[in-house]
């Protein structure tokens, strides 16, 4: 009972606060230029101009081309980091070799450094290694940058799995690899779903590395396209920009919606599956 009161007293107003910026920017995406220039933020558009705004954004920023690239980078970053991080975490938490914590610290140290400082060494290195402006180069980088956070999550999640399960499996004669594949991975679906959603979103929203490691439209990610709609020195077409931002966030919202049940009802799913 008490909890329900709390929900209505605090969470509902908080939700409204959270929705205000979303609502106002969404509204702009539906306005035409005249309405945008003359109306206050809360006024409804006199003409619903969403389709034209989307067309403007789609064509001007060539979002279609970039869309596919970012999809690829996002999937690579998420899938790659899930594989690398779960393998490493399994060993660190369950096999506990000597120096496991040190190795974890090394992997983890990939996140402590301010990202911007990777730009110049990577740009130079990529040119030397002919990875510059290639899809492969972009995927390798995104896998790497996604791995430390993924390792942190998997490490934390694996450490909550009761030790007895593993001991029992070992007594049954299962190899470590089989335990990892057939026991830990299925159990860690919630963690994997979280990593997939967060890391896909991170890669999808990355502008900085997409900009410095590529130069052609064939390899550039979607945020570079979206940046085309922003005004650097002249006022941007705000309705167009907001329409662009709306379509650009569809994949990340879709992914969240699709995977939500795995990490929010993770436990229920496990019991149902067994």
């Amino acid at each position: 009972m008490k909890r329900r009161i709390l929900v209505y007293l605090v969470v509902v107003p908080l939700c409204l606060v959270w929705l205000l910026p979303v609502w106002t920017s969404l509204l702009v995406a539906f306005k035409n230029l005249d309405d945008y220039a003359s109306q206050s933020f809360w006024q409804l558009p006199s003409q619903w101009n969403f389709v034209d705004n989307v067309k403007y954004a789609w064509n001007k920023a060539k979002l279609g081309t970039y869309f596919i690239n970012s999809l690829l980078y996002g999937v690579a970053g998420a899938a790659g980091s899930i594989i690398l991080a779960s393998l490493a975490s399994f060993s660190i938490v369950r096999l506990r070799p000597k120096g496991a914590n040190l190795l974890f610290a090394l992997i983890f140290s990939g996140t402590v450094f301010p990202f911007q400082m990777y730009l110049v060494p990577l740009y130079k290195g990529y040119q030397e290694l002919n990875l510059y402006d290639t899809k492969l180069g972009m995927m390798l980088f995104y896998i790497s940058i996604c791995t430390p956070f993924a390792t942190l999550i998997f490490r934390a999640f694996f450490s909550t799995i009761p030790n007895e399960l593993m001991e029992a499996a070992r007594l049954d004669g299962c190899s470590d690899l089989r335990i990892y594949l057939q026991m830990f991975m299925p159990l860690s679906l919630p963690a994997a779903a979280v990593v997939a959603v967060f890391q896909f979103t991170w890669v999808w929203n990355d502008l900085l590395f997409g900009l410095i490691l590529t130069c052609s439209a064939d390899t550039r990610p979607i945020m570079v396209g979206l940046a085309q709609l922003q005004g650097a020195r002249a006022a941007a077409n705000m309705p167009g920009l907001m329409a662009g931002a709306v379509i650009a966030s569809i994949p990340t919202i879709a992914l969240f919606t699709a995977l939500r049940r795995y990490f929010i009802q993770g436990l229920a799913l496990q019991t149902a599956g067994e």
Binding site: L95, A100, S144, T151
Partner: peptide, 19 residues
């Protein structure tokens, strides 16, 4: 046990720690 950790370490090392 180290072989499990190696791939992650390689990626992080080459693309993040080296820079």
């Amino acid at each position: 046990p180290y072989i499990y950790i190696l791939p992650a370490l390689f990626f992080v090392g080459a693309f993040l720690l080296a820079p």
